[in-house]
C-alpha cells in the first residue's frame, strides 16, 4: 500500500455557544444560561491514499459535513491534526490558513447557493487561481474554457450568469471551480443530493470520468448508500461524531459488521418489485449536545449489553483492511446474522 496523502489523526471538533447577556441574566433565575457544547467530531482517525475515493456516510448530525470542513481547512480541529503530504491543512493561526488550504477544494450540496449570482461563470472560475497565482494571467481565459469543456459545458458559457443554468449545469460549474485550483484532494459534500435522478446520473458519470482522467483523490460525503457504493473504494460510517465502521466498499456492502451499519442498510428503500419491508431502527438520533455514555448507539441497538452502556468501543481490526467500533466485535460475542 502506498503512503497516505491525507492523514486525519485523532481529530475532535467541538462547537461551544456562549449565551448572550440576556440569556445569562435569565439563567440566574432559571439555572440555565451556561455555555452549550456540541461534540461534532470525537476522536476521528482516517488515512486516504492517492487516487482513492473515500465515502463518508451517516445521518444528519453525525458529523460528516464537519469532518469535510475540517479536512478542507474551513474549521480548525479542536484537537488532533489533519495533514496533507505531511503538512497541516488548518492551523489555529489565521495567517497560515489560506495558504495551506488551496490544495483541498470543496464542492457543496446546493449549486444555487454556492455560486455568486452576480458574477459571470468565467469570473467565478478565474477568481481563485488568479488570486493564488496558479494560472498565469495571460492563460486564464484559455484555461477557463478548457475547464468548462472538461466538465461537459461549452467554453462560451464563461460569459453567462449562474441563473442561466439548470441545477445539474451549476453543479458542473462548481466542480470546474474546484478543479481550477488544481487541488490534491476534493471534498464533495452531498454534491448530488439536490439533483433529480436523471441529472444525478450525469454528474456521477462526470465525476467518474474526471477521477479516471485526473487521478483524483476525493472524499465523497453522502447519506445515499447506493450512490456511495457506486463511486467509492472505501466507506466510513459515522454515528454521532464518531467513526463506527470503515471498510472497502464491496466488503462493507456484502457484510456490514456494526449493528448501526446493518440497521442503516435495512431501513433504506430500494427499487425493486413487490412491497418492501422497512426494518426500521427504533428510536431517534440522540443529541450531540448530550451524547449517551458508552457506545453512542446503545439506546437504539438490539444487541446492547452492560458493557455498551459504560464503555466507549474503540475501532478495532475486523479482518483485512477493515475496522469496526463495537464491543460485539472484540468481546467474542457473535452477532446473529440478519437479526438486526
Amino acid at each position: 500500500m502506498t503512503d497516505p496523502i491525507l492523514k486525519i489523526d485523532a481529530v475532535s471538533k467541538r462547537f461551544t455557544r456562549t449565551p448572550g447577556l440576556a440569556e445569562r441574566l435569565a439563567g440566574k433565575f432559571t439555572g440555565g444560561g451556561k455555555p452549550v457544547t456540541v461534540h461534532a467530531l470525537t476522536d476521528v482517525s482516517l488515512e486516504v491514499t492517492k487516487g482513492e475515493v473515500l465515502g463518508i456516510v451517516g445521518e444528519s448530525g453525525c458529523g460528516k459535513s464537519t469532518l469535510g470542513r475540517v479536512i478542507a481547512g474551513i474549521h480548525a480541529p479542536s484537537s488532533g491534526s489533519v495533514t496533507l503530504n505531511g503538512k497541516p491543512v488548518a492551523d489555529e493561526r489565521r495567517g497560515n490558513i489560506h495558504k495551506l488550504t488551496t490544495q483541498v477544494q470543496m464542492i457543496h450540496q446546493d449549486p444555487f447557493a454556492s455560486l455568486n449570482p452576480r458574477m459571470k461563470v468565467g469570473e467565478t472560475l478565474a477568481e481563485g487561481p488568479r488570486y493564488h497565482g496558479i494560472i498565469p494571467a495571460d492563460q486564464v481565459r484559455t484555461r477557463i474554457r478548457a475547464l468548462l469543456e472538461q466538465v461537459g459545458l461549452e467554453g462560451a458559457y464563461a460569459d453567462r450568469l449562474p441563473h442561466q443554468f439548470s441545477g445539474g449545469q451549476r453543479q458542473r460549474i462548481a466542480i470546474a471551480r474546484a478543479l481550477a485550483m488544481e487541488p490534491e484532494v476534493l471534498v464533495l459534500d452531498e454534491a448530488v443530493a439536490s439533483l433529480d435522478v436523471s441529472i444525478q446520473a450525469q454528474v456521477l458519470n462526470l465525476f467518474m470520468d474526471l477521477r479516471h482522467d485526473l487521478g483524483l483523490t476525493a472524499l465523497f460525503i453522502s447519506h445515499d448508500l447506493s450512490v456511495v457504493r457506486h463511486v467509492c473504494d472505501r466507506v466510513a460510517i459515522m454515528y454521532l461524531g464518531r467513526l463506527v465502521e470503515l471498510a472497502p466498499a464491496d466488503q462493507l456492502y456484502a457484510d456490514p459488521r456494526h449493528p448501526y451499519t446493518r440497521a442503516l442498510f435495512a431501513s433504506i428503500p430500494t427499487v425493486g418489485t413487490g412491497r418492501g419491508r422497512f426494518e426500521a431502527i427504533k428510536g431517534e438520533i440522540p443529541s450531540p449536545i448530550a451524547p449517551p455514555p458508552g457506545c453512542a448507539f446503545h439506546p437504539r441497538c438490539p444487541f446492547a449489553g452492560p458493557r455498551c452502556w459504560a464503555e466507549v468501543p474503540r475501532l478495532t481490526e475486523a479482518g483485512a483492511a477493515r475496522t469496526v467500533a463495537c464491543h460485539l466485535n472484540d468481546g467474542g460475542v457473535e452477532m446473529q446474522k440478519g437479526a438486526a
Binding site: 436523471s198 446520473a201 456521477l204 447506493s226 457506486h230 430500494t270
Partner: peptide, 24 residues
C-alpha cells in the same frame, strides 16, 4: 425506463451509468 436505469444501485459499482440526455 431511463429513470430506472439511472439509479446507481441497479449497476455494478464504478460502471458508467446510462443517462437520459438533456434536462427537463
Amino acid at each position: 425506463q431511463g429513470l430506472l436505469d439511472s439509479i446507481p444501485a441497479r449497476h455494478e459499482p464504478g460502471r458508467k451509468l446510462p443517462q437520459i440526455p438533456g434536462s427537463t
